[in-house]
């Protein structure tokens, strides 16, 4: 369960400050599929990154399964992310000089798996996502949809409890968008909590619940 209490985040830049999140409180139950929508600059990504332990809030708390992640040290929080969270990004953020298999192996390696286990698990995940014949291809040799599937496989590598997806369909065509959301739905059906930021209403509708952010506040 994700519990957010009075979360505010203020960015400071060149003497100006911008309030990206303004006292947001919400709860997400285990196994939910949530979409977060809102106009550009409304604080969607900031909220997602705060949930992922990647951005320290100015005020407020983020509890995941009872653990207050910002009370942890940097190293401890990194280990927490490694064990519990999986990220999917709009531009996939695959490492360009590594193959699909190696990209999926990274989180497994960081979690301390040996090379044999890494290869077995990464191959299994990529085959499940229909990329069994693309294991040794680098991202530039894959289609956009295939790259996103590699990113999903990477997010799933360490059996996370939560998937945080930041505009996962933002760069995809309608077919691939449908395919990606279907994968997220399937993952959700296995018990994984999915929190997805999107500006696509059609995609947002496929989540169980939609949260709308406007000017850093939850609306409605």
């Amino acid at each position: 369960m994700i519990k957010i209490e009075n979360l505010s985040k203020k960015y400071h830049s060149k003497g100006n400050s911008v309030l990206a999140l303004d006292e947001v409180s919400l709860s997400i139950e285990k196994g939910e599929f949530i979409s977060i929508v809102g106009p550009s600059g409304s604080g969607k990504t900031t909220l997602l990154l705060c949930m992922g332990g990647l951005i320290h809030p100015s005020v407020g708390k983020v509890n995941i399964d009872g653990a207050s992640i910002y009370d942890m040290g940097i190293k401890e929080r990194a280990a927490f992310r490694l064990r519990n969270l999986g990220f999917v990004f709009q531009t996939f953020n695959l490492i360009p000089y590594l193959t699909a298999l190696e990209n999926v192996q990274i989180p497994l390696s960081l979690a301390g798996n040996n090379n044999g286990n890494q290869t077995e698990r990464a191959t299994q995940l990529l085959e499940k996502l229909g990329l069994g014949d693309r294991l040794n291809h680098k991202p530039r040799e894959l289609s956009i949809g295939q790259q996103q599937r590699v990113a999903i496989a990477r997010a799933l590598a360490n059996n996370p409890k939560i998937i945080l997806a930041d505009e996962p369909t933002g760069n995809l065509d309608p077919n691939t968008t449908n395919e990606t959301v279907t994968y997220l739905n399937l993952l959700n059906q296995t018990g994984i909590t999915v929190v997805m930021v999107t500006h696509n209403p059609g995609v947002a509708e496929r989540a169980q619940r939609t949260l709308r952010l406007v000017d850093g506040r939850l609306a409605g």
Partner: peptide, 16 residues
């Protein structure tokens, strides 16, 4: 930078 950000998001520590 983006690659470093991805690695940190995945679970790499600053020490890594």
């Amino acid at each position: 930078k983006k690659e470093i950000g991805s690695l940190l998001a995945i679970g790499a520590s600053p020490k890594d």
